[in-house]
Amino acid sequence: MKAPPFEYARATSLAEACELLRRYGDEAKLIAGGQSLVPMMAMRLLRPAWLIDINEIAALKFVAVESEVVRTGACARQAVLERDATIGVRMPLLKQALAWVGHVQTRNRGTAGGSLAHADPSAELPLVAQVLGAGMLLRSAKGARKIAAEEFFTGPMSTAMAPDECLEEVHWPLWQERRTGSEFTELSARHGDFAMVSAAAQIALDSEGRCVRAALGLGGVGITPLAFPGLTARLVGTRLGENDFEQLAREAAAQCDPGSDLHASAAYRRHVAGVLAARALRAAHGRAESVQ
């Protein structure tokens, strides 16, 4: 047995999970899909005294596509979101990103909520949440609160969640513009590995082809996934072309603060960030243009 000893509690409702969190506080960890938590425990990077299993809470597994938002329960499996035909049509960026998340076996067990709560700065779903400005509904024994992605992600594997809080729902905003296109791309040693750099873009155009809304994000090049609302706001009202994509990508890459490791140097990551940002913008724009 590789993990250190711990006590196991299977919560059957969110209220029970919150009560257990209230009782054990930072002695406890919630386990959703466990695709990051279990390896970390196997390597003894984490030694929780209690593991609170939320996998049997049916109320945390829903997917609801509403008019302005896709609401997903914190324990909705990545494979379920990936297969959801409505998400594929209404929120293609999420489906595009999921294709890069691990493998079939890990997506069958892994949850979107777990990935967000784990907050790996190179992970795909936190980047989508940051780019779209998703909202996180957090629950504790004291009550609920909702915070935006930009406040939620506070650092590598760090979020604004208190030790007694459980992620309950994720609210992914739907863009209403008919001519909307998106793209997710990344560079890794092998498909399914951790991304060295990832990029996500979404662009909406009016009937004349002018940009009405744009978002760009980069992952793996900072302590949290990064979005660039200040840069993309400049695109609004203009017809976009190759120069815009290149210029914006260069400026976004310049704002990144990547680290160096065995896989890639900081300079290489920054270079790749610019390349991938331009590719993502170009592809998202092309998809938006193809909607008549």
Partner: peptide, 20 residues
């Protein structure tokens, strides 16, 4: 890899108690 309720998953990433 094993099938859990018919879906392939990694059995090193599931504690036996979770399969109850």
């Amino acid at each position: 890899s094993i099938l859990l309720d018919g879906e392939p998953i990694r059995s090193c990433l599931l504690y036996a108690v979770q399969a109850d």
